[in-house]
Amino acid sequence: MDRELAARAAGVIPEGKLVRFLEYLVRYPETPKLADQPHSSEERLQGDILRDFPFCIIDSAGAPKTATLMVALMNNTCDLQPGRSGLVNVALAFDYREYRGSVIAERGERKAQGYLAAVEQNKINELFYVRDCPGFPNGIVILLDNVASVSTDLYEKALQDKRRIASFTQNGFYVFLLKVANYFARPETPDVDRTVVVVAD
């Protein structure tokens, strides 16, 4: 399926914005402009990047561990409106320079080279590399496989404290959706067979 046919059938991209997105896709990733300053009139947008936001994981002993980190909002924009939900879902995000440095420190520059090139070309399913995030000259990387639910009250406080640092551009948002679809909606491996159910003794 070619890009135009797939884009026209995708449904999530309105006809009025389709042509511009198709032009963008043809040039991507050479002229990305995925993200920009926080949107000035839309305060709550899916994909918005927030700094100093609480995040929690459960360790192998079942204990919660918390940290205050950069995140990307995963909820649909309509679910971010006041009074809509008690929780927001966020994915971890990091300064790419820091992440890159960590991978090189662990693997060595030469061995890490191919992987990091793939990250920067957005060829790794789990990661969304955003080259042009304001305040991060080397960009940021969003870890789509590290997601947590956090109280909406803390989201409201982050908005009050002006901790939004970026919003996706219109085309950047579509790329964000494609990355999410590519990661969460990819097919299972062919050896998985859900038609056979073995009842345990």
């Binding site: 399926m1 070619d2 797939a6 999530v12 992987y115 793939a118 060829k123 789990e126 790329v175 959706l177």
Partner: peptide, 21 residues
Amino acid sequence: LKGMSLAALAKTAFPNSRPME
């Protein structure tokens, strides 16, 4: 079909995307 097309578009936009090793 529309939902599948979103995934198909993702495949065409990122044809060589792969899971992490």
